[in-house]
């Protein structure tokens, strides 16, 4: 793998320069210490760059909404004319975590597996991702990427990955696109020495060790393949669950959506928005019959999907170990707790 170096102080200069060509999305500190993944406004790039955080901060919603917005218009009818609304722009995603990038790759596959979903794919067409992997888990009790084998560092399938080695980042180049980017902005990058590559190795080992939450992911997958977990486990979850949909809304690989129309007089907009399998309406059929009528049957769906169905269809789990289902859950349910329970 090719590597380079960039001084930490040069990151913002690089982003400023790149913003001429790219729409840049990065973790920004907003009010009250919240960090959100935001598009840096070109008209006010300097102020926004100051708020870009390079720390391992928790971001409550993964960047999936850049390609699959919570609500998007598919087409509009105005005066009997149909206008399709397909978005395309050059997107540079800076500061993505390894788990979230795995989520993006998984969703990419989904949106082209059966048919080419142009609304999604158009948004991804010109995309470059710079991963800034975590040295410490942003949420100690929730992150379990080492168990899910999705991080904190990637070995392949990325464009660019930054490893924090103190004053500078070691820049790992994982794709042709990544290499082209580094060449284009080469004045910000330096050659790196073996000692820096070695240093990065030590950093990576320490980062792996820093993730304390360990769950038996592979055993969970084996169990789910063999037989259904006891109903009581799902029933307990269903009794607690308040059906906010949060675990699914924040899941980097949950891609279910609903389609609906907003109509008034001559105007009409066809939308799609995020949907979740914990809702009764998700599986209710037109006749009123619901194959997942009870709360516990609906509660089970997400776990079956991530730990069994995804493996069956793609060979990979849809769970990337980001821990967001736990931290977005008002009643503290989540994939890690489920796995702990079935493998206990």
């Amino acid at each position: 793998m090719k590597s380079a170096l960039i001084n930490k102080s040069d990151i913002r200069l690089l982003l400023k320069e790149a913003s001429r060509e790219w729409n840049i999305y990065a973790p920004l500190e907003v009010q009250g210490g919240d960090v959100n993944f935001c598009c840096l406004p070109k008209e006010n790039i300097k102020e926004a760059l100051n708020r870009v955080t390079l720390d391992d901060k928790w971001i409550p919603v993964p960047p999936k909404d850049l390609f699959f917005p919570q609500l998007e218009s598919l087409f509009e009818i105005k005066k009997n004319k149909i206008e399709e609304t397909v978005e395309y722009s050059k997107k540079l995603l800076f500061g993505i975590k390894a788990c979230d990038y795995q989520g993006i790759l998984f969703s990419d596959e989904f949106f082209k597996r059966t048919f080419q979903d142009n609304y999604y794919l158009s948004r991804t067409k010109d995309r470059l991702v710079i991963i800034k992997s975590c040295l410490t888990p942003p949420r100690q009790n929730a992150c379990f990427c080492t168990s899910a084998k999705t991080g904190p560092f990637l070995d392949k399938d990325f464009d660019i990955q930054l490893v924090d080695i103190g004053e500078a980042y070691l820049v790992e180049i994982g794709s042709k696109r990544g290499e082209d980017f580094i060449l284009k902005y080469k004045r910000f990058f330096k050659l790196c020495s073996n000692s820096e590559v070695d240093k990065a190795l030590t950093v990576k080992e320490k980062a792996v060790d820093s993730i304390e939450l360990k769950i038996d992911f592979s055993r969970a997958v084996e169990l789910m393949k063999g037989k259904e977990p006891p109903e009581e486990i799902y029933k307990k979850i269903a009794q607690r669950c308040i059906h906010c949909g949060g675990c699914i809304y924040v899941c980097p690989t949950c891609t279910c959506f609903n389609v609906f129309d907003d109509k008034e007089n001559e105007a009409m907009i066809r939308y799609r928005n995020w949907d979740t399998c914990v809702f009764e309406g998700f599986t209710r059929e037109a006749s009123g019959f619901n194959p997942r009528e009870t709360k516990w049957l609906r509660a089970s769906r997400r776990y079956e999907h991530k730990l069994w169905y995804d493996y069956k269809t793609t060979g990979k789990s849809g769970c990337v170990g980001c821990g967001r289902c736990l931290t977005s859950c008002p009643v503290e349910l989540g994939m890690s707790k489920f796995i702990q329970e079935i493998t206990a």
Binding site: P60, S73, C244, F279, S328
Partner: peptide, 27 residues
């Protein structure tokens, strides 16, 4: 146009969570 809503992580009430109405408070 509004295209989404999501919780504040540090807000003393939401703390990174919302109910279903909050998640759908934009449409």
């Amino acid at each position: 146009k509004l295209i989404g809503a999501y919780p504040s992580q540090n807000h003393p009430v939401s703390k990174g969570c919302l109910c279903v109405k909050g998640w759908n408070s934009y449409e």
